[in-house]
Design a protein around this nucleic acid. Sequence first.
DNA 1: CGGTATCCGCTGCGATACTG
DNA 2: CAGTATCGCAGCGGATACCG
Lengths: 139, 139
Amino acid sequence: MDTTLELGGLSADAYLKSCASRTVLNALADKWTCLLVDALRHEPVRFGALRRRLDGISQKSLTQTLRTMERDGIVIRTHYPTIPPRVEYELSALGHSVVTLMSGIKGWAEEHVDEIVTARKRYDACLDEEAQPVPSPLR
Amino acid sequence: MDTTLELGGLSADAYLKSCASRTVLNALADKWTCLLVDALRHEPVRFGALRRRLDGISQKSLTQTLRTMERDGIVIRTHYPTIPPRVEYELSALGHSVVTLMSGIKGWAEEHVDEIVTARKRYDACLDEEAQPVPSPLR
DNA sequence: CGGTATCCGCTGCGATACTG
DNA sequence: CAGTATCGCAGCGGATACCG
């Protein structure tokens, strides 16, 4: 039995590069997208606030990511033509339906960061000791 | 109340670029990582089988992604020195603990692909009609 | 404030060729 | 079969400057 065939005969298969769901996966499987969905999960947030929250993101990347999410119907952009201008972003219904998954990924990363850092050290140490079989005690 | 402070006083915060959990998020939030976790969720799979399953992946990217996952302790690599050689990859306990989330992302992409494709068309159409205010009925 | 436009260095990734 | 090594290009993302 193929797991790509669930109830109702869902035809999309992200394993296929020509399937549109692959492009959706590509958009979702992104660091910034994940953090943005999480950041917007409770209430609308302004552009500047998002920029401060997502430490290290450039203005360009933030704009681009938000624009893609808006295009995909994940977020809703509201522009208040005040002076100074004010732009708020909020999740659509579609966006809210993926909050659990995206916040879950972020949460998992935070929960298991210690195990993973340890695993990385162990892996790197093993490579090192292969390269230097014996650290030559004399000389 | 800050959502980064859950029970037990978890100190990791993926919003901060200097936090190690950001690097974990970076590794997880990847198209190939997501598909690989899903592909390995039931049983060990050989390198060649993974390559055929993940349509469009290059050998280099597959090797790199698997190596990173092995380093992070997500997958276990087993090499059988037969002729021809045979290498199997399987999820570790840590890897199994993220299957639900990763397969969930893939599943969500497949479930909502139609809505998103529609949203994209609508967005692109709106941009076009702004560029061409009236499609000049007369010529 | 919230963009857009431009430049530009870096690396991500695919293609190809070769190895144990 | 399952890699490693090398090359070469495209695109991402940061920095900067300017606009509504």
